[in-house]
């Protein structure tokens, strides 16, 4: 049964199911006139005063564009995979060259930080020498009233 007819029938059935659900819901659901507060965007009870953001971090668009590169690569890979057994060594070398080119551009992207998200990572921790022992010593010194500059006191142990 190598045909698309069943898929088409299933498509019709799926659309019918969704459509009839809406019809049934329309007949069964209560018809009220909701208040303005109910119609407003849901913000956990706070009255919304700012519109949803029109702009988004550019990284999302960047990801979409990089995705297209890989998607095109996949589009090329599928026909290649189907006839690979006939192509043998030629097919392998050819796709190695292709994958190599994509991989090098991918390396360029990664090494430019194009795919880095989230908080900026510090290269060194702000306080390097803070240990259990040093904290105990510092607290003890403070309790004794003498502010001895410990290894993690401000200004001494901090690596910028």
């Amino acid at each position: 049964m190598d045909s698309y007819l069943p898929i088409f029938v299933l498509l019709v059935l799926g659309v019918l199911f969704a459509g009839l659900s809406f019809v049934a819901s329309g007949m069964l659901a209560p018809r009220k006139h909701p208040t303005a507060a109910k119609l407003a965007p849901y913000e956990c009870g706070i009255v919304p005063d700012v519109d949803p953001p029109q702009r988004f971090p550019v990284r999302f668009y960047l990801v979409a564009m990089i995705f297209i590169i890989f998607d095109i690569e996949i589009v090329f890979l599928y026909p290649w995979a189907v006839i690979f057994r006939q192509l043998r060594t030629f097919g392998l070398v050819e796709v190695l060259v292709f994958a190599g080119a994509v991989f090098i551009s991918f390396l360029y992207l990664v090494s430019n930080g194009a795919l880095d998200w989230g908080p900026v990572r510090r290269l060194m921790p702000a306080v390097r020498t803070r240990t259990t022992a040093s904290t105990v010593r510092r607290v003890a010194a403070r309790a004794a009233g003498s502010e001895l500059p410990g290894p993690d006191a401000p200004g001494t142990g901090r690596a910028a």
């Binding site: 965007p41 913000e43 953001p53 999302f60 990801v63 979409a64 890989f70 996949i74």
Partner: peptide
């Protein structure tokens, strides 16, 4: 939806789904 949370959720969702779709395809 014209609301903040759904918009954030859907932008996250599309970035996530297309990212993993590349790995899926390969």
């Amino acid at each position: 939806s014209g609301s903040k949370y759904p918009l954030l959720g859907s932008v996250r969702a599309s970035a996530q789904m297309i990212s993993y779709e590349a790995a899926l395809g390969m």
